[in-house]
Amino acid sequence: MSEAAPLMVRFTVNGRSVEVDAAGDVPLLAVLRGDLGLTGSRFGCGLEQCGACMVLVDGAPAYACSRPAWSVADRSVATIEDVGRDPVLAALKQAFLDEQAGQCGYCLSGIVMSARALLAREPSPDRAAVVAALDRHLCRCGVHNRIVRAVQRAAAHLAAEGAAA
């Protein structure tokens, strides 16, 4: 059995250009966590069933656990670590804290990234829109209502501040 040949993958992550060697079948999540030290995105199931690994690829939510690293070549990836640079992620973080919308927190990085994408396309989502956007996520702590309130709170804060998503 032979190993896959290394593949040079260039992409932007959190506004920074990176170049990594990754075999063609290495998941993006392994590159983010192992090669780049961005450990905020979590490995949950590896089957696109829980959303703990969710990142944004060119602004759209994407599962990093099953997506091959080569698929983001010349694209932009955002992870939860972008919170310091992104005012919308910062507003979401504060709203999640204010609503106490997390217990163990394992799922939250993926949920926040999906919420970020939602606010980019719909700055004032109603409850149904938030629930639909977060439907791909599994939280076993039972804080779903607080999570929905947190997303709506962040949206209201951003609207009051006049911040563009």
Rank of each mutant, 00 (worst) to 15 (best):
V77P: 12
A78G: 01
T79R: 03
I80A: 15
I80S: 12
I80D: 04
E81T: 00
D82K: 01
V83H: 11
V83F: 14
G84Q: 02
G84A: 06
R85Q: 14
R85D: 15
R85H: 14
D86Q: 05
V88F: 00
V88E: 00
A90P: 07
A91H: 02
A91G: 09
L92N: 07
L92K: 06
L92I: 08
Q94W: 01
Q94H: 13
A95F: 06
A95M: 09
F96M: 09
L97V: 15
L97Y: 14
D98Q: 13
D98G: 10
E99L: 09
E99R: 15
E99G: 10
Q100Y: 14
Q100D: 15
A101N: 12
A101M: 12
Q103A: 14
Q103P: 12
G105D: 08
G105I: 09
Y106P: 08
G110P: 12
G110M: 08
V112S: 10
V112I: 15
V112Y: 03
V112E: 07
V112H: 01
M113D: 07
M113W: 07
M113Q: 12
S114G: 14
S114D: 11
S114F: 00
A115N: 08
A115C: 07
A115I: 09
A115Q: 06
A115S: 09
R116C: 04
A117Q: 05
A117N: 06
A117D: 03
A117I: 05
L118K: 03
L119V: 04
L119S: 05
A120E: 13
R121T: 14
R121H: 09
E122D: 10
P123G: 03
P123E: 01
P123A: 09
S124Q: 14
D126P: 03
D126M: 00
R127T: 14
A128D: 13
A129P: 02
V131K: 09
V131H: 02
V131L: 03
A132C: 03
A133P: 11
A133R: 07
A133T: 10
A133K: 07
A133C: 08
D135V: 01
C139T: 04
R140D: 08
G142C: 09
V143E: 11
H144L: 07
N145T: 13
N145E: 15
N145W: 06
R146P: 13
I147M: 11
V148A: 06
V148H: 06
V148C: 07
R149F: 10
R149M: 11
R149P: 13
R149W: 05
A150V: 13
A150Y: 01
V151M: 02
V151C: 02
V151K: 00
R153V: 06
R153M: 08
A154V: 02
A154Q: 01
A155I: 00
A155R: 00
A156S: 12
H157A: 14
H157Y: 09
H157S: 13
H157N: 06
H157G: 07
L158M: 15
A159C: 04
A160N: 11
E161Q: 15
G162D: 05
A163D: 04
A163H: 13
A163N: 04
A163L: 12
A164I: 12
